[in-house]
């Protein structure tokens, strides 16, 4: 028997994921312009809600910034000009993809450096092992291992 509850349950099950994933509504009607506004918005950080882009956010400031992006696109400005405009006012932090320069060097090079260090250590470790497999075993350990195996 298919009951009403089951049908509603199924509907909720399948519709659930979509209903959550809705993004902040856009205001204008022109789809081409909106696509460009969205593309740029996805790369700008909402400073009020710092872990969201302004495309994701409905905060007052995010809406203002989106409107600003839209106005600037209408005026014929390109993406670089718009981003420069935002950086001039809010700093590099407004970009989700921060530029590579002196102050951001640690941010960009740090993880890579860590990876190299880890790689260097593991290579050294493996090499030493293969050259001398018993290097990490003392006579005492071997005796203990033998005793354990006997039981």
């Amino acid at each position: 028997m298919i009951t009403k509850t089951k049908i509603i349950g199924l509907m909720l099950f399948f519709l659930g994921p979509w209903s959550f994933a809705e993004e902040a509504p856009l205001l204008a009607k022109d789809p081409v312009l909106e696509a460009r506004v969205k593309a740029i918005s996805l790369e700008l950080r909402c400073l009020v809600c710092q872990n969201q882009t302004i495309a994701d956010s409905n905060a007052g400031l995010a809406v203002d910034l989106k409107n600003q992006v839209r106005d600037m696109l209408r005026e014929g400005m390109n993406e670089t000009q718009i981003k420069d405009f935002m950086v001039e006012r809010y700093g590099d932090f407004v970009l989700y993809d921060p530029p590579i320069k002196g102050t951001t060097m640690v941010l960009w090079a740090g993880p890579l450096l860590m990876l190299f260090i880890a790689f260097w250590f593991s290579v050294r470790f493996v090499r030493r092992r293969s050259r001398n497999p018993d290097a990490y075993k003392s006579a005492e350990d071997i005796d203990r291992a033998r005793a354990l195996l006997k039981d």
């Binding site: 400073l47 009020v48 007052g60 400031l61 203002d64 910034l65 600003q68 006012r89 809010y90 700093g91």
Partner: peptide, 13 residues
């Protein structure tokens, strides 16, 4: 009123 000048001053909080 609409926060346009605030934007020029980088106002967000």
């Amino acid at each position: 009123l609409n926060g346009r000048i605030g934007l020029d001053y980088g106002v967000y909080g």
